[in-house]
Write a protein that binds this DNA or RNA. Structure first.
Lengths: 226, 226
DNA sequence: CGAGGGTTTGAAGTGCATCAAATAGTGTGG
DNA sequence: CCACACTATTTGATGCACTTCAAACCCTCG
């Protein structure tokens, strides 16, 4: 049960189920564009989706890359407007789409539902604020380090082996840098913090060394809530 | 009547009024810090307030600088957490603070109130997403140009004279650059777009020239909704 | 007038981007 | 299983944008 529906009467949940369209989307598929009229919102069940904004001359800003459990397009509610970002599948994804009109109706009917959506939107806002901070204060290697730290499962301390969740070119864009810069910055991070890199897997022996290096340029210390 | 209370029954509005504390805050006063437990939210009536996040070693990221009509701290609702940013008065301000607990109660009681808060939060989220794009794609002079364009009153085309709303050092931080960079970037913007600058006032004869220059590196064209 | 902050300018440095090319990795068809 | 095509990643050389440090200037306000 997704947090959005937690505690919501079965009757209301069934209304969503009745109007839900599940979809399997392959890598590369565009779910919606920034200019599209927003009529549905999406629940990402599995896979990865890139949220981006794009200028006429093809320059792209990656706003976020999200995985299972995330909502897409829900924040347009009551704006009657277009989506804030485009959304593109970057790893084969399963999604369920539902009408925004139903979501609107539901939050006006059910206080639990409203509360759940507020909670989701607050959290998204907080994370985005943090992102803006990172882009402003952290340099390239620190942003990578911070990203890696957030990949570490809770309560893990020793012999950490991470697998980068998507390709390095996308990670670069996600962190607001070019692929070449990413490559070099990752090397610098390795030299500075003693992490080991083999392709897409990263081994971290000394989390403190990594967090000291990355979190020194951040307003919140490791472990970050999120 | 602030949009948050638009269409809300007088009875409920009176509850807020009963618990509202109006305050005059001088320039330099901290309204709240990022680490503070969020118990109240604020309605900024007049003046300007800087929202920022700060690292231990004094490095600061300005998230936004807002003026009359903006809500502060409202997005912590249902997180039971600390504020997302610190807030500091940068031009003498009048604020009204109200308990977050009352806001929580109100959005659970009144669907109109919930709807109004959703609208405000969506809008804030959209603007922040845009900000992230700007910082990623636009260079320093373009960010300044974009900022100036957003200062132009609606439906104004000719003989525009703007007054910079707060000092240049703060504008620099607001746009994610250093004061020296701001100064030089503003000169470059002048040379490129034919605007004229005298202290804190800026004259724009040719809006198109300015928007061509600034909006070429943006996903939305002038005039931006916001 | 003089102090102090905001602003500008100059000179030099740093970090990231760009362009170009090499290398590694992956999936294809033979 | 190999050779090929194609993409992702890395590396090198160079350029540009922004920062840093230092000093001058300017403006306001007591």
């Amino acid at each position: 049960m997704h947090p959005l529906f937690r505690g919501v009467p079965a009757e209301l949940v069934n209304k969503f189920i009745a109007q839900a369209s599940p979809h399997g989307y392959p890598k590369g598929r565009i779910i919606f564009m920034q200019e599209d009229e927003a009529e549905r919102f999406y629940l990402l069940v599995s896979g990865w989706v890139k949220l981006f904004r794009e200028t006429l001359d093809g320059e792209e800003a990656v706003i976020d890359v999200v995985d299972g459990g995330h909502l897409l397009g829900e924040s347009v509610i009551f704006e009657n407007d277009t989506y804030h970002c485009g959304a593109e599948v970057v790893e084969d994804a399963a999604l369920v789409s539902m009408p925004l009109s139903l979501l609107k109706e539901a939050v006006e009917t059910s206080t639990v539902m409203a509360k759940n959506l507020f909670t989701a939107m607050s959290r998204a806002k907080r994370l985005q604020t943090k992102e803006l901070e990172h882009r402003t204060i952290q340099n390239a290697p620190q942003r990578i380090g911070c990203f890696l730290l957030r990949l570490i499962p809770k309560n893990t301390e020793k012999n950490i082996v991470l697998h980068l969740p998507y390709d390095k070119t996308l990670m670069a864009a996600r962190l607001g840098m070019k692929p070449e810069t990413f490559s070099r910055a990752l090397n610098r991070l390795r030299d500075e913090t003693g992490i080991r890199i083999r392709g897409a897997s990263v081994e971290i022996d000394d989390v403190k060394m990594l967090s000291d290096y990355s979190c020194s340029a951040c307003s919140s210390a490791y472990p970050c809530e999120e």
